[in-house]
């Protein structure tokens, strides 16, 4: 089994310099290995550090110590020490991150927003568009909205556009930060299918899901994250 994510001895603390220098430790001695085709669900109470760990796996948060090694084709990269441009290259092809929030420039149409990550890899425009259309249809985003910017959409619609964008590239590593929060049952089911398809093609998935039905449908393993 190919190890895609290898976390060793990760610690993370935050120091709030402008609030009296308050310092608190969120993660300590975290070990986690995730192999290709496996979905690990981070489990624990609100505030326990699940999101912090997920963000560290995307190098969005800097860890205080420890290593996070990700497999990139036939190379491995420790993202706690890698250069910014190495991390950006990883994010382009290897690591995808889907949150519940969409961040876009106001005037770009939905279809473009969804297909952009695949276009950036140099994929043929027709291929990108076909895949974007397929994902938007599956996620029940009405076709009449596709030519409009998602900035005025409802929260749920934006969220589904964001999921479509997150699944447009077949990332070998997928990080999912509550992508199904506040989706209805039918759309949650679509996301479950997308995750299971990703697993079948060999993706290593780490996710946070509050809905028990989603968790049960996708998780191979639960990892407990305990508040310190």
């Amino acid at each position: 089994m190919t190890i895609m994510i290898d976390v060793r001895g990760v610690e993370k603390s935050f120091t709030l310099h402008n609030q009296g220098g308050a310092s608190f430790s969120v993660l300590e001695g975290v070990q986690l290995q995730v192999v290709a085709g496996e979905c690990v669900v981070l489990h624990g109470q609100s505030g326990a550090g699940k999101s912090t760990l997920l963000k560290a796996l995307y190098a969005n948060y800097a860890v205080s110590s420890g290593s996070i090694v990700l497999r990139d084709g036939n190379q491995v990269v420790d993202i706690t020490t890698a250069l910014p441009r190495r991390i950006l290259a990883l994010r382009e092809r290897t690591v995808g991150y889907v949150s519940q929030f969409l961040r876009v420039i106001p005037r770009i149409p939905t279809l473009q927003v969804v297909m952009q990550p695949l276009l950036d890899l140099g994929e043929d425009e027709a291929v990108c568009e076909a895949k974007a259309r397929d994902l938007l249809s599956r996620l029940n985003v009405p076709e009449r909205l596709w030519s409009l910017s998602p900035s005025t959409f409802s929260g749920g619609e934006q969220q589904r556009v964001n999921i479509a964008r997150g699944f447009i590239v077949d990332y070998p590593i997928l990080l999912l930060d509550e992508p199904t929060a506040s989706l209805d049952a039918a759309n949650r089911q679509v996301v479950v299918q997308l995750i299971n398809e990703a697993k079948v093609r060999g993706a290593a998935v780490v996710g946070i899901f509050h809905d028990e039905d989603v968790r049960e449908a996708v998780a191979d393993r639960l990892v407990d994250i305990r508040a310190l």
Binding site: H17, K55, A59, A62
Partner: peptide, 13 residues
């Protein structure tokens, strides 16, 4: 550092 890391997890006061 990386833009989103500096903005989302700033270290310096």
């Amino acid at each position: 550092g990386l833009t989103d890391q500096v903005l989302d997890d700033p270290q310096h006061p």
